[in-house]
Design a protein around this nucleic acid. Sequence first.
DNA 1: AATGAATGAGAATTCATTCAT
DNA 2: TATGAATGAATTCTCATTCAT
Lengths: 205, 205, 205, 205
Amino acid sequence: MNHTKVKTVSEEKRQAILEAAVEIFSQFGYHHAKMALIAETAGVAAGSLYLYYKNKADLFSEIFEQIWNHLDRHTCELTRRNDLTPRQKMDCLVDLIFDFFSLKTPTALVFVNEQNTWYQLERKRFVAYRDRFLQGIDTIFQQGQQLGEFNGRVSPATFCYFIFGGLRRVLETWAHSPGQINLEAIRRDVKELIQYGIQREATLK
Amino acid sequence: MNHTKVKTVSEEKRQAILEAAVEIFSQFGYHHAKMALIAETAGVAAGSLYLYYKNKADLFSEIFEQIWNHLDRHTCELTRRNDLTPRQKMDCLVDLIFDFFSLKTPTALVFVNEQNTWYQLERKRFVAYRDRFLQGIDTIFQQGQQLGEFNGRVSPATFCYFIFGGLRRVLETWAHSPGQINLEAIRRDVKELIQYGIQREATLK
Amino acid sequence: MNHTKVKTVSEEKRQAILEAAVEIFSQFGYHHAKMALIAETAGVAAGSLYLYYKNKADLFSEIFEQIWNHLDRHTCELTRRNDLTPRQKMDCLVDLIFDFFSLKTPTALVFVNEQNTWYQLERKRFVAYRDRFLQGIDTIFQQGQQLGEFNGRVSPATFCYFIFGGLRRVLETWAHSPGQINLEAIRRDVKELIQYGIQREATLK
Amino acid sequence: MNHTKVKTVSEEKRQAILEAAVEIFSQFGYHHAKMALIAETAGVAAGSLYLYYKNKADLFSEIFEQIWNHLDRHTCELTRRNDLTPRQKMDCLVDLIFDFFSLKTPTALVFVNEQNTWYQLERKRFVAYRDRFLQGIDTIFQQGQQLGEFNGRVSPATFCYFIFGGLRRVLETWAHSPGQINLEAIRRDVKELIQYGIQREATLK
DNA sequence: AATGAATGAGAATTCATTCAT
DNA sequence: TATGAATGAATTCTCATTCAT
């Protein structure tokens, strides 16, 4: 029974370190974040970090893995739902991301600001996760095209990249001054942009 | 007397260094780019870099300054033209970005990938340039809204970021495998997405 | 009451740790041998090592102590025997070393490879053991010289080192690929080399 | 012309660093030698070491390379000479080594004491150099066996290893207290041991 | 102006040892 | 006794920048 406790204690500390890392990475960026400071923030000795994570890059990657797992899980569910129209699904997708950003702000800051760092550290995984996510958008988009709800003249790939890039960019701006920009206003705007960007002309009559 | 000539020679070398820097920064990212390698690429000694630029950050900033000046100049011109409708201006803006990416790919990659690095190095300038550029788009956008051509419910800033983020992302994909993707097809798709994203519903009748 | 038993149990674990240490030290060398790995090999927790040995150096030293005690005991016995000629005693000495190597190969490897490490850690003891052992050889050697059996022009110490170095080297080669080399053939060769190296010219007539 | 000078200056400093390294390695052993101390001893900054040597292991290896190149060159020459009998060649070989040890004592100390360290760092090169050297002894030995000068009952391989090991061991002892042991006395003894160890019985009549 | 060898501050990481349980 | 998570001292190596030539 204390096996469970040990596991729990460890898992708790692992999480505490991760949270400290998020804090420090979001504040200083990957390259200026010092392991010693992460350790101090987490309330452990510097050496202890290496009991839970192989090295700085590994600790950093863990943040991205957790985010992607979260996004992935929900995107998959979303594509499979039958109770929503493609247009509603697209809205939900935007909500999924915006909810994550408003609830886990520091994590989200790391996610958008250090995207390129992670790409350099873990090219393979970066591409894999990104493509899986794009796949999700693609699925929804094609569902919409088949139902005649979405603009049929645009290639799904371009659409995916465009929407994903637009979202990321908007959130980057927010990430640079999260206190000053109203996330909810942006959320509405983005939905509007996507909806009217994908809407088939005929339906607008 | 030969002051002009010296100036020119110096200016040429300054530019050569800058181009080498673009090459190296785009390949390795700011933090993994070594000054020694930039010097070698530029065909000068490491120490000589410091005759032309104060330090690494300064050299890096210069790249962003040049890009912004280029974008700025063209955006300003564009806003002032009377021979184009706002919708056409928006098309021209897309062309501006597409041309920039296809003609100066490494520069463009540094611009999109190292945005956050530059933000950390030069917060003030980052914000200043960004806002000035936004101002330009805003002008066009408002012209379009006043003429009833553009969607009036979206904030120009969000619109602007979203569009540019989308553009950037699409072009990044192209930049990673330029031979395999038809740039002109993407250009058309993007214009389509933007037009129908900003178009006032009524005009779609 | 069960004091004896406890002692025995403890002694067994102490020995198990020592054997694990021999294994790891012989494989990685003193400086690359990790205490954690020794503990794992011995089937105890890392912290437990310190219940039996003061520290890494102490554990390491214990190996040398045991080897020396083994060599010492047999060498002493050998010198005291009256039923053997000096030449036969020398043969026995070679057998002692050969047996040690073939029966306790990892231990022997630590002994030969880490000689210098031990010298740095325990200079005093190193010298003391070495000199005591030399004393033994010296005794046999002088017995041989007095009987006119051995070459009188060579210093016993040099003789001793030379012979042991040669033995060690030959056995090292064998230890690195025990299956491919016939230990008995080497044993014969070495005895031949020693005999004819120590033999007084006159006796060869 | 100053190209030569630059080269010379660099080569001099490279050598100065190497000598400092020999000094420090011989005093503390590889694992306790600090790069900072080597730099200080050489009169350069710590970072400068890395201009001349890739890392600590590389600097350390250079010492062994130089020694082996020296020994190699002379051993090769020796085997090819026609003006010496095999017995004289064997004597010269011993002299080669002893001369090196008396002239370059600190270097020699590193060579014998850190043999095992080098083996662990550069297994391949260690074996290659050692085997090439053994080859040299082997050549001389077989020349001697063919002429009937040397003991024909001992396998050349065992002989080589034995002699090499004996030599190394004798010098190790000297290395542990170079001031207290008369190298010349050992030199004589070793020659004696080898000669009478390899001498064919018949020639002793 | 140009060079490039020299500098040295700075940070990640390892691992023997401890100690609360 | 036994554990093994936590500690933190200690050290290598990198690379932007300087400066004597």
